[in-house]
């Protein structure tokens, strides 16, 4: 018999697993690092990290049988936080790796930054560094954080949800304004790396650990 953890940190080989774990510990959130679908299903809340490519990440998730568990978690109303690739994968589909079917928990696609129509010098890809996020409404995970706060991004693809009401925060890069925080019901997801975004990023992790949707 497995003991249900209060927070499950999903381990599917994502490179930022250690950093997310250390950040959660730093803000006093005890958590279990797990790739066991049953443990993920029974957890009180789930953190879904990610870094790298959508195709390989989806393959790892499917091989571990975690995709089904995540769908059930989302349906059951368990708070779920996706980070970076863990944010993108919540959508229907990504343009990355020749097109990758994702979890479909939020309607929309993940698109590639394309600045080829802009004059030189063009914005660099990946979009890497600190960029402000404008909050479009209030949300418990953003409590205590000012709109316009900077967060740390590293990505070449960005979420393009089809429902405007799923966009909680947005950022601009080049001529593109994109959704940098998504939220709906028990789901919240950040395109930026909350675990590497200093005090404001830590605040999001802490707020998430106390959030009852």
């Amino acid at each position: 018999m497995t003991i249900a953890p209060s927070v499950a940190l999903v381990d599917y080989g994502a490179g930022n697993l250690t950093s997310v774990s250390l950040a959660l510990s730093h803000v006093g959130v005890s958590h279990a690092i797990t790739r066991d679908p049953d443990v993920i299903r029974s957890a009180g809340r789930v953190v879904f990290p990610g870094v790298g490519a959508a195709g390989a990440s989806m393959r790892n998730i499917q091989e571990a049988g975690i995709d089904q568990a995540l769908r059930e978690v989302a349906r059951a109303g368990t708070p779920l936080l996706g980070i970076c690739i863990g944010c993108q994968i919540l959508l229907d589909r990504s343009q990355e790796d020749g097109g990758t079917d994702c979890l479909g928990l939020l309607p929309g696609e993940v698109e590639r930054f394309d600045f080829s129509a802009l004059p030189e010098p063009r914005p660099k890809i990946p979009h890497m560094g600190w960029n402000p996020v404008s909050f479009l409404r209030e949300h418990p995970v953003l409590e205590g954080i000012p709109s316009g706060a900077f967060f740390y991004f590293v990505h070449s693809f960005y979420p393009a949800p089809s429902r405007q009401e799923d966009v909680l925060g947005r950022s601009s890069y080049g001529d593109r304004t994109f959704a940098s925080i998504l939220a709906r019901d028990n789901l919240v997801a950040t395109q930026f790396h909350a675990e590497k975004s200093g005090v404001h990023g830590l605040e999001i992790l802490k707020n998430f650990s106390r959030w009852s949707p």
Partner: peptide
């Protein structure tokens, strides 16, 4: 360092 520093 990673235990105390939450930036890249």
């Amino acid at each position: 360092v990673a235990r105390e520093v939450f930036i890249p």
